[in-house]
Write a protein that binds this DNA or RNA. Structure first.
Lengths: 168, 168
DNA sequence: AGAAAGTCTACTAATGCAATGGACTTTATG
DNA sequence: CATAAAGTCCATTGCATTAGTAGACTTTCT
């Protein structure tokens, strides 16, 4: 149940482009520098995003990348599906539906997988780049975010992971 | 956002053991045969489940594996975390909370990841092996599962894609 | 004693992920 | 029109993880 490094880079780059949506084309080098991403790797990612028509490129000197649509119309689900594939923990929604109908002994398990995917899809399809850069996400309207109290005090800068311990 | 093959095998094996919870120890070979899993690989998985105290082994002739707790008290989240780690799409819940507090430019993104993890955790922590084998999962009380009508005819072997349906 | 089972450690093959290198094309501009 | 600055495209590599195997060992039943 993980997003790849590449997927995270893609999201960071897209957020950055969303913040600068008014500024025209941004150089790969600049994105890489500001978000601290490996430049050559980022290049491949941007190319993929371009082929998926989410960004467009300007070639030659003064070139670079920019969003092709308004940040409010680019959903996180699109980016994540492009880079990391289906949101389901196993196979994809359609295959899961087939398995639920055919694999009787395991149908309940596949149904749970489908429920998990639906829950993730609901969130990611309702969150856009605009939501991310404005600081409020639309699916969090239940006061959950704002009602948060009792935050832990963190002294150290490095998150430490104790060996063998599961943290969630 | 994927579960590993190993994780799927573990879930299948645990479901099988849950179905036969009354029957005492089941041989690895029998589990492997019935669920069609690679025997030697399954052996490692069961060992891991044993070390996590979810199953127990009986050694020697007439030995095998059995659940150590009632199926109604083994949650899918336990099994999946054991084999595939945290449920969050990135890092784990605790690290995400830290990042939300510290990485200002990306906090909204990490918050979305945390929301996704919470949604998955809610489902998987509320579903037990008992739910899987009895054919009803507890989180689906909104009529979604039970109100299902219009089931497709299972004659054909090929999955048919219904138009307009989101597939992953 | 022998057979049937789990235990444990090591190994390997294959895959996928992350990253890099380098030749090529396009464009601005002096 | 030459040059530099940028994107494009493809090949390759290093590495980690995953999936699976092998085999020697231990325990228990009969």
């Amino acid at each position: 149940m993980k997003i790849s490094q590449k997927g995270l880079y893609a999201l960071q780059a897209m957020m950055m482009l969303a913040r600068r949506h008014h500024q025209g084309a941004i150089k790969i080098r600049e994105i890489a520098y500001e978000e601290d991403l490996p430049e050559k790797f980022l290049e491949l990612i941007l190319l993929e995003l371009k082929n998926a028509r989410m960004v467009e490129s300007v070639r030659g000197a003064k070139g670079g990348y920019q969003l092709r649509r308004d940040p409010a119309e680019i959903h996180l689900s699109e980016i994540m599906r492009l880079i990391d594939g289906p949101l389901a923990p196993f196979a994809d929604a359609e295959q899961l539906r087939v398995l639920i109908n055919r694999d009787l002994p395991h149908r309940a398990l596949y149904q749970v997988f489908l429920d998990v995917r639906d829950a993730a899809a609901k969130i990611l399809e309702n969150t856009t780049l605009a939501d991310l850069i404005s600081g409020t996400a639309p699916h969090s309207t239940k006061g959950k975010r704002s009602a948060k109290k009792n935050e832990k005090e963190k002294g150290s800068v490095l998150p430490m992971v104790v060996a063998g311990q599961k943290n969630d």
